[in-house]
C-alpha cells in the first residue's frame, strides 16, 4: 500500500510538473511568508495570547460544541475531541469529494457537514462563524506538514496551475510572474512573497480581521484589475488546491498573522 501511495505521488508530480514559462521554485528554496515577517509580527503569531486570530480559534472551539440545525447536533457529537479527530485534516485540504468528483476546500467541507448532517443553513463565506470553525480546525494541524498526494486531484491541480500561470486583468500579470519569478523583491513597500498558504485563515493586519485564502486571492486579483472568482467557485478551489500542492511539505502555521 505504501509503495502504491508513493507511486501515485510520483504520478501526480509528473503530471503537474512545469510546462514552459515560469519555473517552479525548487523545493528546498521554498519559504513561508513567516520567514520574512518583522520581529514584532512574528512574536504576535508565535504567542497565542497576543495572536489576534486566537479569538477566532476560541470562537470556533465554542461553536464546535454548539448544537446547530434541525438535527440538533453539534460537531463534537460526531467528531468528538477536535484535538484528536481534526488533527492533520486542514493539512490535506482541499480534498477530493466523491460526490462532487473534484476538490472541496475546508470551508465547503464544513458547510457540507452542516447541510447534510446537522440540517443547518450553510455559513456564508467570510462570516465570523465559518472563519472561526475553519481557524479552530486549522489550529489542530499546526506544526504538521502540508500533504497533497491524492491522485484523483491531478487534473484539478493542473487546472489550478493553469489559473496560476495565466495573465489576468487590465494589468495582465499572472500569479506566477510575481510569486514564482520575482519573490523576494520589493513591489513598492511590499516584499513579494512566494505565496504559500501555510497559515489560513490568517489575521491580516491590513484587514484588521481574520480572513480566508480566497479573500486573499481576491485582493491580488483586484490589484490586477481582474474580476475575482466568486467565493466557492471551482476556479477558487482549484487555485487553493494548486497552492497547497505547491506548498506540500511546508508546515501548517494556522492561525497565521501577516502584514
Amino acid at each position: 500500500m505504501k509503495r502504491f501511495h508513493a507511486l501515485m505521488c510520483a504520478v501526480v508530480l509528473a503530471a503537474v510538473a512545469g510546462p514552459a514559462g515560469s519555473a517552479d521554485i525548487p523545493l528546498d528554496q521554498r519559504r513561508s511568508g513567516y520567514a520574512d515577517l518583522g520581529r514584532d509580527t512574528k512574536a504576535m503569531q508565535d504567542d497565542d495570547t497576543s495572536n489576534p486570530a486566537s479569538l477566532g480559534v476560541q470562537d470556533g472551539e465554542a461553536l464546535w460544541s454548539q448544537k446547530a440545525g434541525t438535527a440538533g447536533k453539534a460537531c463534537a457529537e460526531c467528531h468528538g475531541d477536535a484535538a484528536a479527530s481534526m488533527k492533520g485534516v486542514a493539512a490535506r485540504y482541499p480534498a477530493f469529494s466523491p460526490a462532487r468528483k473534484g476538490p472541496i476546500d475546508l470551508e465547503q467541507r464544513i458547510n457540507l457537514c452542516r447541510t447534510e448532517n446537522q440540517k443547518a443553513e450553510p455559513l456564508a463565506f467570510e462570516s465570523r462563524e465559518l472563519l472561526a470553525l475553519t481557524a479552530y480546525i486549522g489550529r489542530q494541524s499546526r506544526g504538521m506538514p502540508i500533504v497533497q498526494s491524492d491522485a484523483r486531484l491531478t487534473s484539478a491541480i493542473d487546472a489550478g496551475r493553469k489559473l496560476f500561470t495565466q495573465r489576468i486583468g487590465q494589468i495582465s500579470l499572472s500569479c506566477a510572474q510575481c510569486h514564482d519569478d520575482n519573490w523576494g523583491k520589493q513591489l513598492a513597500s511590499s516584499l513579494v512573497p512566494q505565496g504559500h498558504p501555510t497559515g489560513y485563515p490568517i489575521y491580516r493586519l491590513e484587514w484588521q480581521s481574520l480572513g480566508s485564502l480566497q479573500r486573499r486571492l481576491r485582493n491580488c486579483m483586484i490589484g490586477m484589475r481582474a474580476e475575482p472568482y466568486a467565493y466557492g467557485a471551482p476556479e477558487s478551489v482549484e487555485l487553493e488546491l494548486y497552492l497547497m500542492w505547491r506548498a506540500r511539505g511546508l508546515t501548517v502555521e494556522t492561525p497565521g498573522v501577516r502584514p
Binding site: I168, Q170, E227
Partner: peptide
C-alpha cells in the same frame, strides 16, 4: 486581455 474587471474593460491603462 483576460478576466478584466468590468470597470476597466475596453480601456487602456
Amino acid at each position: 486581455l483576460n478576466l478584466v474587471a468590468p470597470a476597466f474593460r475596453g480601456k487602456p491603462l
